[in-house]
Design a protein around this nucleic acid. Structure first.
Lengths: 207, 207
DNA sequence: ATTTACTTGTGTTTTGATTAACAATATGTA
DNA sequence: TACATATTGTTAATCAAAACACAAGTAAAT
């Protein structure tokens, strides 16, 4: 099975399985059943087993899945690229939140650069990450081998900048900008529009 | 057609259509074609037309959709609940970002309360929104008729708190906490796990 | 009046993921 | 050994969203 063909939903769940296993379960259990893992994440046991099948992981009929092995296997799959360098564009509240979050959590994602336009912020490290002017993005991205960009700027020029970022060699972009992006083939894009999500919640929230 | 049966994707796109129309198009055009709207949002024209069909909106064969009418119609659908009061739980970077964002944007969502546990923050308004201690959530939610809660706390007790919030009468929760929630029937839940999303981007980003 | 070009509106098909169903398997017990 | 139980692994069915395909309508050009 081509690993890159795994459904996005599966990858997201794998990330959550792993976090759940390393955070809650690892210390007091050796094995876990599909229905237990499912209950923790509010999924069905079938879905858990399906995901296991997709990544080619087996459990035992009597004891379920060995937690350590499972964590190992999930990591093999989702960390297959090794350590990945990330740059955060825009050091407003959201940008700061993300830098902090990635430093606090155990993860192979390292924030290696921050970009902004505000001279107050540039050249002062934030949580010991250097902050550069956006105009230097090409150089810094290449120097630091940045693979992932997180866009948290308010900017209207987000689209042009995203193209420039992609051109500099970034192959994954997470876009918190309200501007919908269209990137060259081969650059993976994840968009999250906070206002749209909130409007959706408001719509489906019953009166 | 039962309005609450509209697919989530359609609601999200409606929110984006409206923003696009009011931001870019309104000032220099009277009508717009499905393929133009689609191009702006990087969708297919068929999808746009399908969404129009679902909300029962018609265009003209020659001129496409009248922008003013369309905005009006979309607003009828997605703003059908009128003004909606929102509370933000946790005034860290992410919480601050969201309060600011909702105040800047033209929207019917009003942040009417902030909750935190840090005594430094409590009772000092943030961007003129009052900040309360979390222990008062029941009272404040009722007093201020809060409908939507946004959870941005780091906390491990997020789940218990969410249940309490739901019990207080909130019917829509947006969860930025890494803890997966299970809420009573009738409370709409939207989860967004930033770390999981980033891990997904890292996975699909080609080397 | 006819044709052409372009668009909307919608039935049909495809796709992809989730859910359901169940066969296969291991373990403990009589 | 045979049986009961509980779980996994996988095939088949279901479902929902998106893409396709085209009929129908309209205005302009000939």
């Amino acid at each position: 099975m081509d690993i890159k063909k795994l459904p996005e939903g599966t990858i997201e769940r794998l990330s959550k399985y792993r976090r759940c296993l390393t955070t809650y379960c690892k210390f007091y259990r050796e094995n876990i059943f599909s229905h237990e893992l499912a209950r923790n994440l509010h999924l069905t046991p079938e879905q858990v087993r399906r995901d296991m099948m997709l990544i080619g992981h087996s459990g035992s009929h009597k004891n379920g899945y060995n937690i350590e092995e499972l964590v190992e296997k999930i990591s093999e799959v989702i960390d297959c690229r090794g350590k990945t360098n990330v740059a955060v564009f825009g050091l407003g509240n959201l940008g700061q939140a993300i830098v902090r979050y990635l430093q606090d959590k155990e993860t192979r994602l390292n924030v290696e650069a921050i970009f902004d336009v505000n001279p107050e912020k540039i050249n002062k490290p934030f949580l010991s990450v250097d902050c550069y002017h956006i105009k230097d993005l090409k150089r810094i991205i290449k120097e630091k081998d940045i693979r992932i960009a997180v866009l948290t700027l308010p900017g209207d020029d987000a689209h042009d900048m995203a193209l420039e970022i992609a051109e500099a060699g970034v192959t994954g972009i997470m876009n918190f900008t309200p501007v919908p992006l269209k990137l060259p083939e081969g650059v993976f894009l994840e968009e999250y529009d906070i206002l749209t999500s909130l409007e959706k919640v408001a719509f489906f929230a019953k009166k």
